[in-house]
Nucleic acid binder design. Structure first.
Lengths: 164, 164
DNA sequence: TATTGTTATACTCTATAACTATA
DNA sequence: TATAGTTATAGAGTATAACAATA
């Protein structure tokens, strides 16, 4: 009998759809009105496109952002790059191993602290990153194609004010 | 030498911060201006709060949305609920097993098709869902506390226009 | 003592192939 | 022949404890 009480969102109370369609679509209830749910669903779709975009270069999202940060932050330690990306240090090791093996990055033993590595891109790494940046730029244009520049800025601003 | 070319975002060209701080923060480059990156970072933070919110009921996010859909869609098959949630059918089985075991849901063999199950909530399931809906409502208010009602609607609208 | 990179490990989420029983 | 639920399995991503080398 009783549906769980609507403690959520001032329901827009969508009018009951015509009988034919009524049985086809599953009622998502308040889910579409939840910021968390909407953001997750959208993010999953965007991420899928992002992964597909980079896959032609054999890069995964975390690798792309790692290359970007290494390029922009010469002299930084492995642990600093990892932390900035929100990646646990242990999990960053295998990622660096693979990128080293592919000849995209190099780990130089620091001259001031022999415990740590200084990361840098190889020439191949820089070339690949440039191509990746182009592809990501296209991806960005693709996912925001229905939004104006102002709307994109608005979205970025709103996202920055969530969950802080 | 050459940083990877800025094919991305009309950089707001943040003025170089004072020398003291310059070394502390890792330069994220164009990442913060990428909708995908911003959305992922925000979503991770929101999801962490969501998981913590439901953990006191022993529910995980997918279980919450499953309970919600079962409650709202009496007579639906297991596979229909799973698909509406974007969960692979095989992965939904263990979830239903656990919720059945906890006495939150029941699987009734369909009278019209003996291959399929009709899902329903038990009284305990409905009670737990009601409490969960309250907690999620508080979570929603918490993550959007810096936004007006109009801004939340604006955000939902913008998200809906991404990656479709 | 504390930190850096590392190894080992475990847990969750997700994805696919293949089985069974029904249709 | 196709579909619903299931099993088994594999791959990401993520998290923590603990060790060796160094500070």
């Amino acid at each position: 009998m009783s549906r769980a009480r609507r403690a959520l969102a001032p329901s827009p109370d969508t009018p009951v759809p015509p009988a034919v369609e009524a049985d086809l679509r599953v009622d998502l209830g308040p889910l579409p009105n939840l910021v968390g749910y909407a953001m997750r669903r959208t993010q999953v779709a965007v991420f899928a496109d992002f992964i597909a975009t980079l896959s032609e270069l054999g890069l995964r999202p975390a690798q792309f952002s790692a290359l970007l940060l290494i390029d922009r932050n010469p002299g930084r330690k492995q642990s600093e790059i990892a932390e900035a990306l929100g990646i646990q240090r242990p999990n960053f090791v295998a990622m660096m191993d693979e990128m080293d093996r592919r000849g995209l990055t190099r780990r130089l033993t620091s001259e001031t602290d022999r415990r740590s590595y200084v990361l840098e891109l190889t020439e191949a790494g820089r070339t690949l990153l440039e191509r990746a940046v182009e592809l990501v730029s296209e991806h960005e244009a693709r996912i925001t194609r229905d939004l104006s520049r102002d709307e994109v800025d608005l979205l970025l601003g709103l996202l920055a004010r969530i969950a802080n």
